[in-house]
Amino acid sequence: MKEIIKNALILFAITLVSSVLLAIAFQVTEEPISVQKIKQRDAAFATVIPDATFEEIVDLDFSEYEKIDSVYVAKKADEIIGYTFKLITNEGYSAGIEMVVGVSIEGTITGIDVMRHAETPGLGALADEADFKNQFVSKPLGELSTVKGVSSNDTQISAISGATITSKAVTNAVNEAVTYYNNELKEGN
């Protein structure tokens, strides 16, 4: 009986010391981690809307837009120039694709970027290459669709060959952001 208590106490002491250590480490790293996260986010945002500051719009209702994670307003010299959307879509080939879409108030898509994905290397992973992403730049704010082969007008996105599913997932997410902008954010609504 005595031995059990002794063992338990020693184990307890070890866990106690670990928890204290971890608590301290957490305190120390908490700030740098959040700074890194914002830096990372802004770096991604800057690829779609350069030279702007971003501010999250809180208290929005995304219940009908399941892919939208958050929306940020992009300002240049205190003037709103557009919005960035953080999206997470599960329509890809692998786990969720995290991406950013930029929309300018002049009515075009300013660009997209893929932040995190687990798509097949050599196929779906090409969605993070400029060849694919640049297709979205300057597209009008309407419904986009994917086609196999060369796109023939500016509502079409040419799908990555061998990765139709990924291309569609990305395009659908962009569509959702555009729809949200058109319905909820556009001036005059």
């Binding site: 002794k6 063992n7 338990a8 020693i10 184990l11 070890i14 670990s18």
Partner: peptide, 13 residues
């Protein structure tokens, strides 16, 4: 570390 609880102790560390 007592040998009876060594594995949980190692894992905690």
């Amino acid at each position: 570390i007592p040998s009876k609880v060594r594995i949980p102790a190692y894992i905690v560390v």
